[in-house]
Design a binder for these strands. Sequence first.
DNA 1: ACCTGAACACCGTTCAAGT
DNA 2: ACCTGAACACCGTTCAAGT
Lengths: 230, 230
Amino acid sequence: MATRTDLSVEPRTPLSRERVLRAAIALADERGIESLSMRKLGQELGVEAMSLYNHVANKEEILNGMVDVVVSEINDAVSAADAPFGDWTTAMRRRILSAREILLRHPWAPGVIESRTNMSMPMLGYFDSVIGLLRDAGFSIDQTHHALHVLGSRILGFTQELYEDSDEPDPEAMAIFIQQMAGTYPHLTEMAKQISHDEATTLRGCDDQVEFEFALDLMLDGLERLRDPA
Amino acid sequence: MATRTDLSVEPRTPLSRERVLRAAIALADERGIESLSMRKLGQELGVEAMSLYNHVANKEEILNGMVDVVVSEINDAVSAADAPFGDWTTAMRRRILSAREILLRHPWAPGVIESRTNMSMPMLGYFDSVIGLLRDAGFSIDQTHHALHVLGSRILGFTQELYEDSDEPDPEAMAIFIQQMAGTYPHLTEMAKQISHDEATTLRGCDDQVEFEFALDLMLDGLERLRDPA
DNA sequence: ACCTGAACACCGTTCAAGT
DNA sequence: ACCTGAACACCGTTCAAGT
């Protein structure tokens, strides 16, 4: 009982670049990106921090690798959901929303993606297919370039969250805030009042998914108008 | 010559919260936000790092304060440029572009703003006036809320830069890249080719100001259509 | 070939001690 | 009231030494 008999099956899986990346992603998913240090990652793998350097050059390369794994996941998802018919807006819409689904499972990814300075192959592949979709729809190269800037990070399924609503709605604190700030920030309080009123139905400050799709559709509409000038 | 006579004028200006923040902003502007450590900031002020804690609670509060200074700068600029006539799109356009002008002088600001978790008074004031502008233009509260999500960080004058083009254009490396990647990423190379061709005129990969304004105008058009449905 | 311990140069921050 | 030195608990990373 005290000793494992079948040593050949689980003989302390050897370290590898892939295993390091998988562990890093799991750690960031579960405990947040700020918990990802070389020492803690080593600990998670039952190894000293210094051993990691046998498989990755440095922490920066771990972050690069983590992004690549996630973007590859996105590439697989969108190419699986590829349908060769329908207009380009619905194709783009579906693609972006499935990218978003994946990124929602990796809350650290947007920040890390943003901090990368070099394009990796999975990322190049993703953008190449997005550009292809727009070109096939009839956009000129210039228009396609503009479209990428319009959609921005939304192409990958995320947007900059200016002050994400705190996890706790805390209607009482909100009520106090509204009362105190009514004089100083009349327009803001008016809006906060309505949002906290709607809260009964949506349970949160605002429904991020709804807002994401609203903004996405507005941009796709604007681009569609650009493509085929009346 | 060796001794300063007029000691009363520059008798080693006493430390203060304001002086700490000003030095922090100057340091981040000149040497990048990654150079902003308590020890280096103290050094810049001719003081030990630990002295800073007499004027700010911790580094987090320094970052909060830096953002507040910059956002106050934006508030001053937009209220100075306030004109009570013209349609809402031109008013919003001017406001956002002058915010952008200020943020371009503080390259660290977008990242730090994004990492804040609490709204400060200057930030609340800025958003209140943006909301007021939209409400006065006739948008409903819901529409105004959507508009904020559509514009996102663009309201403050910046957007997430997915891979900012490296500072050095390096046309030779670009040519090699294009040749190597042509088979794998056909659409991307087609676009890169055109961009590096235009480079003669624009001197950079792409003109960020032009792209920012293009995206902004597309969004303002989309919102305007929403406000007054035909 | 892979893993380790000790060490280095950095962090933010606390605290008792100085003036 | 303000500043300081020493110290603590953390970082990423190097390197000589182990097996």
